[in-house]
């Protein structure tokens, strides 16, 4: 029998991640499928700390810490050298939302447009957590951060990074989260198998200190993000063929997702924003369902 998630571990326990760190768990889950013939490029992000100080390196693969804006391009360089040496090492660019949605977007777009043979994983905790919870363009509307304080919570919706990646027509892109480990594992497997071109995984990763919730609620928060359709799980081939991979098996209201997290406290005073989010979530979900059905119809399913 084969487990849905491999038993192999390429990340040691005792990282410097905070309790309940979704980013640490995401790495552990991804590496299980990628294996040890891999190298990781980490720009400035929580993972430049989580990895650990000497001699406590937590990853059993080579790690290259690089400048904030360069995850995709340094990975590109490593892959080119490996290819030149006749090796098929999986090169992972592993960046947070700031290093992906904001400062790293230009490098990411360049690599995607050239269809570089790298696996880009964005572990998205929806703000600059490592520097003290500043908003990023991945921060959802209505959120408190230290730079969107209570009196002026985040005014804009989260940037749709998947739509941006889709516009680059890369071979494979998917959303995932460790609350659905089998789905995440299968997507990593698919991404590794799709080698030869650019692969992008958008992995929602809870951050208990930044999301203002108890550490033991991290998995539940990520699960509710999916069930409430705030963070739908789907995959996208060649930027066109979209398939939803996890269909919520029960109704969860967006309020049930928000109420777990102190960062959404400003929404308590903003009922119109909540209604706007509700209608945006429903509209986006319906658009995904429509595209899923079109993909199925084209495939003759």
């Amino acid at each position: 029998m084969r487990w849905a998630v491999p038993e192999a571990e390429f990340m040691d326990p005792g990282t410097l991640g905070c309790q309940g760190c979704g980013g640490a768990l995401s790495m552990r889950m991804v590496l299980k499928e990628v294996g040890d013939d891999a190298a990781a490029v980490l720009p400035a992000c929580c993972w430049s700390i989580i990895d650990g100080p000497w001699p406590l390196h937590s990853l059993n693969i080579p790690v290259l810490h690089t400048a904030f804006e360069t995850a995709a391009v340094v990975a590109t360089g490593i892959k080119a050298a490996k290819r030149h040496q006749g090796k098929d090492t999986t090169v992972i660019a592993w960046a947070g939302d700031g290093g992906t949605f904001d400062i790293g977007l230009q490098a990411l777009s360049g690599a995607a447009e050239r269809n570089e043979d790298i696996l880009y994983v964005c572990y998205d905790n929806e703000a600059y957590m490592n520097t003290g919870i500043q908003r990023s363009s991945a921060t959802p509307v209505g959120t408190w951060t230290t730079t969107t304080p209570d009196e002026r919570p985040e005014p804009r919706p989260k940037k749709d990074i998947m739509a941006i990646m889709a516009a680059h027509r890369i071979p494979y892109a998917a959303t995932a989260t460790s609350a659905y480990p089998d789905d995440l594992a299968r997507k990593v497997r698919t991404a590794v198998a799709a080698r030869g071109g650019m692969r992008f995984l958008h992995v929602l990763s809870a951050c208990p200190p930044g999301w203002k919730m108890p550490a033991d609620q991290a998995i539940e928060a990520m699960r509710r993000a999916v069930l409430s359709k705030v963070f739908p799980l789907y995959e996208l081939r060649n930027g066109r063929d979209l398939t939803i991979t996890v269909w919520p098996d029960r109704e969860v209201a967006i309020e049930e997702y928000f109420e777990l997290q102190g960062r959404f406290a400003p929404l308590e005073h903003e009922p119109q924003t909540v209604e706007q989010i509700r209608s945006d979530v429903a509209e986006r979900w319906q658009a995904l369902v429509d595209r899923h059905e079109r993909t199925m119809a084209l495939a003759g399913a």
Binding site: G98, T131, G132, Q134
Partner: peptide
Amino acid sequence: YPITPASGILMHMM
């Protein structure tokens, strides 16, 4: 833009 140890200035300014 967030960067330690200057983020405090960004935070207070915001």
